[in-house]
Amino acid sequence: MFIASQRKTKTRVLLAKAAVKQYPLWFIVPGAIIYIVLFAYPTFSSFYYSLTRWTLFDVEFIGMDNYIRFFSEPSLSLSLTNTFIFAFVTSASKVIIGMALAIWLSGAIFAKSYLRAVIFFPALVSTIGVGITFKALMAPEKGLLNVTLSIFGVEGPYWLTEPSYALFSLAGIEIWKGVGIATVIYIAGIAAIPNEFREAALVDGASAWQVFRRITLPLLTPATSTVIILSLIGGLRTFDLIWATTGGGPGFATDVLASVIYKNYQAGFYGLSTAGNVVLFVMVAIIIYPLSAWLNRRIVEV
């Protein structure tokens, strides 16, 4: 007490330091060890292993051969295209449908919380379960979907087995499953918009469309950017849904990057699949970081 009052300036510095360093550094050790052992070390060692041909028994350094072979895979160009189509279609649809549902569910409607729960339920089910269920529903002749269509005299499409549109059937399932999360994010975003803005606009004689276009949409940018980033990353990395429904088939028609990588791993080409994972990692990073920076710049402060 005595010393502190004598040397006021130093005390202030110490206090400032204490405010910044509230917890001892030791506290980060458990987290850091887990992060290093389970994330950082495997990530960086995968860069090395992607340059080797390894089995579980030994390693042989082969330079860039895995990358050359990976990019010359006959199914790779198709799977890259599929990955982009899948990611952008699902991401865009989740933004549009999610926002529409959120606006509808934020209004004064009957059974609001029940409807909100129903929209969110698909997000709670395991993707494998969803995949297996839809595989049965979308079966060409005995599936519920086509049996229902045939009652109305419509011959249903071969949802998952016709190479030209099987990928879009998969995107449809992914949207059904993932739109709940997007909706919840948007509902939170809408709730955060102060009601005064809307009321003021209405008093000034703005139409419902103008309120949406000039107030809701710009102030929802943080929610939109979250939905886009999450769904795009999810879409680019998607694997489980495709594996449970088509396995990348028929043939290679619905192969995406992640399923090509998994098939190489299954076949025992560990070096090749490690290289594929590095490619996926780099690709997601190249797309997401600039996009995320751009989206964040557009966020309007309330």
Binding site: P74, A253, K263, F269
Partner: peptide, 27 residues
Amino acid sequence: GPNLSQITVSVGTGQYSAEEGAEAYDE
């Protein structure tokens, strides 16, 4: 090769010609 199943499905569904299928399997 590990992908003969998918390659033969591609030929059988008409996505690959026989030549394309055989070349893909050679790779």
